[in-house]
């Protein structure tokens, strides 16, 4: 049984249909990347998994149980945490308060404030600062930290490299091995294809709301990825 199993998932914002029958599986302990152009439906997919979009219950199963119709707060209690696109820190909370918000779900596990400060020393120094005072990279670390405080079994990361300098992206991604080492399964959405191929055990490519390619990075040629990505 896969940790996460998605079958025939469709989703729409009002009249605009964003996903057309997505099938996707993530095994426990894997790191899976979803790539695709802007508007391919990657963020929609993560928002649907996290419960921000209502979906039929059976479309999304987590650890064997249907979670499609659960509220986001219930889903995070089951062990799925999302690092949302654009980081979305709470601007009127301090860094530490933002991190503590992540523990709201009450799940126990390896991640505590002190362990997080070990993973991201830059945050420890700025724990009392307003979240808005952080640099872009620090904000991304805080957003990842907040999600980890829920001690998820599955961590969803939406475009964590977006808008960051290459050196900062390296720093952010440097945290990933430490997270995986705790047995956490990771599903990342990444526009930077080479970064995604380097990090992931398996890759899905989305194009206009459909899965156009799936496989281990080593098994995929540049040509096939280009075709799946752009449809040309």
């Amino acid at each position: 049984m896969s940790l996460l199993e998605i079958r025939g998932l469709t989703a729409a914002y009002g009249d605009f249909q964003a996903l057309y029958g997505i099938d996707l599986k993530v095994e426990e302990g894997e790191t899976v990347a979803i790539i695709g152009a802007n508007g391919a439906g990657k963020t929609t997919l993560l928002r649907a998994i996290a419960g921000l979009l209502r979906t039929p219950p059976d479309c999304i199963r987590f650890d064997g149980a249907p979670i499609g119709s659960l509220a986001p707060s219930r889903i995070v209690r089951r062990g799925i945490a999302l690092v949302p696109e654009g980081r979305r820190l709470f601007p009127s909370l301090t860094v530490e308060e933002n991190l503590r918000m992540g523990a709201q779900s009450g799940r126990g596990g390896p991640w505590t404030l002190s362990r997080l400060y070990g993973l991201f020393p830059a945050l420890a120094a700025r724990r009392r600062a307003a979240a808005t005072a952080l640099s872009g990279g620090e904000q991304q670390m805080a957003a990842i930290g907040r999600a980890l405080m829920a001690n998820p079994r599955l961590l969803l990361c939406d475009e964590i490299s977006l808008g960051l300098a290459p050196r900062v992206i390296r720093d952010v991604y440097a945290a990933l091995p430490g997270i995986r080492a705790e047995g956490t399964t990771v599903l990342i959405v990444e526009q930077d294809t080479s970064r995604a191929l380097a990090e992931a055990d398996r890759v899905y490519c989305l194009q206009e709301g459909r899965v156009t390619l799936e496989g281990a990075p080593a098994a995929l040629t540049r040509e096939r990825i280009r075709l799946a990505y752009f449809g040309l």
Binding site: S73, L93, A150
Partner: peptide, 22 residues
């Protein structure tokens, strides 16, 4: 913690839900 949740929800209700706030 309740006050923190109040302020977080006020900032961004969607993201607060993602953190497990009902």
């Amino acid at each position: 913690a309740l006050g923190r949740a109040f302020r977080a929800v006020s900032d961004d209700a969607d993201t607060a839900q993602l953190s497990g706030v009902e």
